[in-house]
Design a protein around this nucleic acid. Structure first.
Lengths: 137, 137
DNA sequence: CTGTGTGCAAACACTTTGCAGGTGT
DNA sequence: ACACCTGCAAAGTGTTTGCACACAG
């Protein structure tokens, strides 16, 4: 796993530092969207809160992770899937948030085509579905 | 308009106070989703910031307004349409955020049916589309 | 008159920024 | 060796709470 995260960091032209490895590990282990808090909770205590902020921002900038909308207004983050590079993003995800266990994950589902009124141009679609997930059902 | 807002407040079993009337007026005038900041900017200066917070929370509780997701994590609010009462909500809206003018509004569009993996149960769907709106196109 | 809303002040939580020193390449 | 991360501290911003008074019903 260490090798894997180092490889990812290297691919995105980021130095492999302990903080980044730790945060990246968390994303690799839990495969659902994480809030800043989630990350801080699962992070070695020597990691500074500020570093988490900066690391997340760096990851965002480089396109390693992406934002996930949450109904509570708390921003969450998730790893981009393999196809995403710094240059080419396609973030038309469907996210599912379980109201019971609180987990949000990416569904590998086609984003339906929505018919917009005339004159509207779509750039990005974010679909958040809330309900009960398979584990909690 | 004053009469209208008083009527609404009364319907939702809320006292008609100046603060609530003012905030409700803003929602009635602008027919797109407003952030807390938007409201504060358009609000008479005698209205306390705290009152805005509390009023919004009250409106939310009573089902007068509902949350609108925003990609920046900034919570926005919009009036529920007429069919919403305190008891019965159906918030499967489609929201469109223009990346140029920044306005977010409710589109009167059917929410497409998404096929979920087995075991998932849908309770609420939030669809946020970002792009260029008709006025900015 | 009574319960609720409001304003003010302060506490609290979250996020960002500057700088000095440490670390990966 | 150099640029870039990191930690600490502090400032900045957004949100919540407690309390006394004012007001709508």
């Amino acid at each position: 796993m260490k090798a894997a995260s180092d490889q990812i960091l290297h691919d995105f032209k980021l130095k492999a530092t302990p903080g980044r490895q730790a945060i990246l590990h968390i994303f690799l282990k839990k495969n659902f969207a994480l809030s800043h808090q989630d990350i801080e909770k699962n992070t070695p205590s020597y990691l500074d809160r500020v570093t988490v902020y900066r690391t997340l921002k760096t990851f965002l900038d480089k396109g390693l992770i992406h934002k996930v909308l949450d109904d509570e207004g708390a921003m969450k983050y998730a790893l981009c899937n393999e196809a995403c590079t710094t240059a080419d993003h396609h973030h038309n995800h469907v996210h599912f948030k379980c109201t019971k266990c609180g987990q949000t994950n990416c569904l590998e589902v086609e984003v339906p085509n929505v018919k917009l009124p005339k004159g509207y141009r779509t750039e990005e679609v974010n679909l958040l579905i809330q309900g009960i997930c398979a584990s909690c059902g």
